[in-house]
C-alpha cells in the first residue's frame, strides 16, 4: 500500500457507502414527505449523490500510477492496533460510567491513558487521575449543579 492506493481504496469505499445510502438507507430510513415544504428525502439524496460522484472521481484520479506511489501509506498496521486499544479504553470508561458512576470511570480512564502515554511511576498516575476526576466532579456536579452519572 502507498499513498495513491490508499486514496484509491478510500474512493472505492466512499462511492460504495454513497450507493448504499442512495439505494438502501434513504428509501428505508427516511420517511417520504406529505407536501409541507421540501420532501425530507430530497436533501439527503442530493448529498449522497454528490458523495457518490465525488468518490468515483477520487477513484479515477488515482487509477493511474503516479509519483505518489513513492509516498508511504498514511496509516500503518501498528498504528491501527494502537488505535483499537485506545478506543477500547474509551469504551470501558463509558461503560464504567453507566455502571459504577462518574468518579470511578474518570479515574480509570486517566490512569490507563497515562500508562499508555508512557508514564510508569504509580504516584503521579494516582494523584493526577484522582485529583483531576475529583476536581471536575466537584466543579460540575456540586458547584454548577449539572448532575454527572
Amino acid at each position: 500500500m502507498n499513498a495513491r492506493t490508499v486514496d484509491l481504496w478510500a474512493g472505492v469505499g466512499i462511492a460504495a457507502a454513497g450507493l448504499i445510502t442512495l439505494f438502501y438507507l434513504i428509501p428505508n430510513y427516511v420517511s417520504a414527505g406529505f407536501g409541507f415544504g421540501l420532501s425530507p428525502r430530497a436533501f439527503p439524496y442530493l448529498c449522497a449523490g454528490a458523495i457518490t460522484v465525488l468518490g468515483v472521481f477520487l477513484v479515477l484520479l488515482n487509477l493511474k500510477a503516479s509519483r505518489r506511489d513513492q509516498i508511504k501509506a498514511p496509516v500503518a498496521r501498528p498504528a491501527l492496533r494502537r488505535l483499537l486499544v485506545v478506543l477500547s479504553v474509551l469504551v470501558v470508561t463509558l461503560a464504567l460510567m453507566q455502571w459504577a458512576g462518574y468518579l470511578a470511570a474518570a479515574v480509570v480512564c486517566v490512569a490507563l491513558l497515562m500508562w499508555m502515554m508512557g508514564e510508569r511511576r504509580w504516584l503521579p498516575i494516582l494523584l493526577t487521575s484522582v485529583g483531576w476526576s475529583l476536581f471536575l466532579w466537584f466543579l460540575f456536579d456540586r458547584l454548577l449543579g449539572t448532575p454527572l452519572p
Partner: peptide
C-alpha cells in the same frame, strides 16, 4: 503531555455529558 492528554480526554467526555447526555458521549467516540 502524558499528564495533559488523559485529563483532556476526560474533560471532553465530561463536556459532552454536561451539555448533552451519556449517550452523546458514545457518539463522541
Amino acid at each position: 503531555l502524558s499528564y495533559i492528554i488523559p485529563c483532556v480526554v476526560v474533560l471532553c467526555i465530561t463536556g459532552v455529558i454536561v451539555a448533552d447526555s451519556l449517550f452523546n458521549a458514545w457518539l463522541l467516540i
